[in-house]
């Protein structure tokens, strides 16, 4: 864990949002909505909570980060570049031929990616496997898993939750980015999720229901979780706003997988730089 204040984390989260919008604008494709909604958790994990070394991305005792909703990799790429895993100029190569920054995360190409993801519902089980390996090998690391709300439709998510419970994986921290929008519409329209926190509780998790875009609440939840080595896996259900930080993207299902044009890009940067909304 690193000593950094909530106000400093907020500044970093805003910077990552600017990188996300810029990257997707330059790539002319990508997924801004879910990248922006997850910014607070990704920032708190990478810049405060996780025990990692950008100079040694394969360090066996490092904390792992699994972006199960792999399509929002721009927010993870922004965090990795800012941490120094690779040059920030590489962000301009997102989704371009030969880039280490594939459209969905590729662990063989990009340093700092602990597992390749992109097919929804699959990353969680991989994270459970990493956590189980840590337990069996007597290593102290933790595994941070970011799940989208929409991918909770996938049965494999709940299979993986069972594994976390059975093997007492208290070294797993799941963050559900509950922005309530998926590709075809709201979660309620596509497949009602009911009470996500109650579902995870019934699978044996300790659950924190928070505002996932409130950095103080994210940090407080992570502070509480850190000390709780009690055999129970952890889940933070973060209510978030898809497209958070860019007014015209907020809560708009159309900004799931669309790149801004030049005018929209300028407006987004103006807002993220503290200008008029």
């Amino acid at each position: 864990m690193q000593d950094i204040s909530v106000s400093e984390l907020k500044v970093i989260a805003n910077d990552l949002r600017k990188k996300v919008v810029t990257m997707i604008y330059k790539a002319k494709s990508g997924h801004p909505g879910g990248s922006l909604s997850a910014a607070e958790f990704v920032t708190a994990a990478y810049f405060r909570e996780m025990n990692i070394d950008p100079a040694d991305p394969k360090w066996p005792d490092r904390d792992r980060f699994v972006l199960s909703k792999g399509h929002v990799c721009p927010i993870q790429y922004a965090a990795l570049a800012t941490k120094g895993y690779f040059e920030e100029s590489v962000l301009d190569t997102l989704r371009k031929e030969g880039s280490i920054l594939q459209g969905h995360p590729d662990m063989k190409k990009c340093p700092g990616i602990d597992i390749s993801t992109g097919s929804l519902g699959q990353g969680f089980a991989c994270g459970a496997g990493m956590a189980l390996a840590g337990k069996r090998q007597g290593r102290d690391y933790r595994v941070f898993v970011v799940l989208g709300d929409g991918e909770l439709d996938e049965g494999e998510i709940w299979e993986a939750a069972n594994v976390c419970n059975k093997y007492a994986l208290d070294n797993v921290v799941v963050f559900v980015d509950w922005n309530n929008l998926q590709l075809d519409g709201t979660c309620d329209q596509v497949m009602p999720l009911l009470d996500i926190g109650a579902k995870f509780e019934s699978f044996g998790f300790e659950v924190w229901n928070i505002d996932g875009n409130d950095m103080q609440q994210v940090v407080d939840a992570l502070d509480e979780i850190r000390e709780r080595k009690n055999g129970k896996p952890k889940c933070i259900v973060g209510k978030t706003v898809k497209g958070k930080g860019v007014s015209y993207m907020e809560n708009q299902v159309g900004w799931h997988g669309t790149a801004p044009n030049e005018e929209q890009y300028k407006q987004a940067m103006l807002e993220l730089n503290g200008g008029a909304v």
């Binding site: 662990m107 597992i115 969680f124 089980a125 990493m130 390996a133 494999e156």
Partner: peptide, 23 residues
């Protein structure tokens, strides 16, 4: 030994996660 129950999909995923850790 690990038994994930009648859940082949997570069996494959858990195995991949284990493999990233040298197992």
């Amino acid at each position: 030994h690990i038994n994930v129950g009648i859940a082949e999909q997570s069996a494959a995923g858990v195995a991949a996660g284990l493999a990233t850790c040298g197992i």
